[in-house]
Amino acid sequence: MSSKPMRKRMLRNVNAKIAAIPMIITTLVVFVGGTIWSVVYAFTGSKLLPKLKFVGFDQFDRLWSNSRWMVSIENLMWYGIFALVFTIAVGFLLAVLLDQKIRFEDTFRTILLYPFALSFIVTGLVWQWLLNPELGIQAVVRGMGWTSFTFDPLYTPELVLVGLLMAGLWQGTGFVMCIMLAGLRGIDEDIWKASRVDGISKWKTYLFVVIPMMRPVFITTLVIVAAGIIKLYDLVVAMTSGGPGNSSQVPAMYVYDYMFQAQNLGQGLAASTMMLLSVLIVLIPWAYLEFGGKKRG
């Protein structure tokens, strides 16, 4: 084999390859390399600095017997279920309402979507203020005469997730609505004409024709929202800092604290590995449905 055709092949498209160097470095070094590094070091006893002294599954044993981690997982699960169901259901309903050829559609959409432009920190701080027990919503309702009214989620461990959800839903529902609205607009007008000719009522058409047709939109939204929920961090930091007590801890907070505050790197990496695993559980079935089917088909 002469080296000439080989060199020629390497030099083909050389500018494109040079231009793609940042992408190649990012994917190989940061995304793939970084992930592998973290997973490997999660099996070491690293404290302040990374050291390759393997300890097997010790870090994971410690993780799953740590009550703070268990609370974090439980919180994330409940928050995740409610946030997913509500954002998607409410987002879809709002999209349907906006899709009724109404006036001022742009105005309504602008209002429903603006929280999405704000950061979780801003969102969290505003809602922290609204839910302030002495001066916020509770005080206003009491001031109107209902003196026994109690709504103090941020200082009640059992209700703290409700407070987080109120803020999280306020911020994120508009985004889901927008995607759903785009999905509804993508549906052929003829479907509507056909169902009208057949005398099928509007809500039945939505339920039995439109929603099944929008399945890919729902799945994509689900994956995006779910992947975002697993990263939940800023909102909790701003609203409760994990309190009261440990009642609103989430995994991302655990990772940060062990990695950068408690100087227990191995433990932080083990926790982040679990986060990765949970994303993969969401992602792999989706990728399989989305791309796996097509290749064979």
């Binding site: 494109a16 190649i24 970084g34 973290s38 990374p50 991302a252 990772v255 982040s272 986060m275």
Partner: peptide, 30 residues
């Protein structure tokens, strides 16, 4: 200007956007 492997890198890139940042934080610090 597709080149060999360009689609692979793109796929990794898109998957990478779903991976929780927490797992890449420390390697990036290093």
């Amino acid at each position: 200007w597709k080149f060999k492997g360009s689609e692979v890198f793109f796929t990794i890139l898109i998957f990478g956007s779903f991976i929780p940042y927490q797992i890449m934080l420390y390697p990036i610090v290093i």
